[in-house]
Structure formats: structure tokens, C-alpha cells
């Protein structure tokens, strides 16, 4: 699955790991994250992410 990287701080979203702290279970593809998903490190919006 495609990884995505935060263009503001460089944090990477790996769908295999998900982001359980934000309610995204392991295996959740990036495009299925809710629209109000934010970077857990710097707070950037989902639209600030780019394919890694």
C-alpha cells in the first residue's frame, strides 16, 4: 500500500501500521482516512500529505 509523507514536517503515514492514536487501524489506506485527519506530529491537514 502507498505510504504518504507530511510535506510540512516529514512524518510518514504507513498504512500497514495505521495510526491507532488517531483512530486509524493498521491496514487503513491513506485515502480512507477521515477528511479531518491531521499529522500527529505537526498538525498538518490531510491535504498537506503527498505520496512518499
Amino acid at each position: 500500500m502507498q505510504k504518504y509523507v507530511c510535506s510540512l514536517c516529514g512524518w510518514e503515514y504507513d498504512p500497514a501500521e495505521g495510526e491507532p492514536e488517531s483512530g486509524a487501524a493498521p491496514g487503513t489506506p491513506f485515502d480512507q482516512l477521515p477528511d479531518d485527519f491531521v499529522c500527529p506530529v505537526c498538525g498538518a491537514a490531510k491535504s498537506d500529505f503527498e505520496p512518499a
Binding site: 510540512l8 514536517c9 516529514g10 512524518w11 506530529v41 505537526c42
Partner: peptide
């Protein structure tokens, strides 16, 4: 690089 320690 030490991104977010404490700026990008």
C-alpha cells in the same frame, strides 16, 4: 536531520 525536534 531531526525533524520536529523542534521544527521541521
Amino acid at each position: 536531520e531531526t525533524r520536529m525536534l523542534h521544527w521541521p
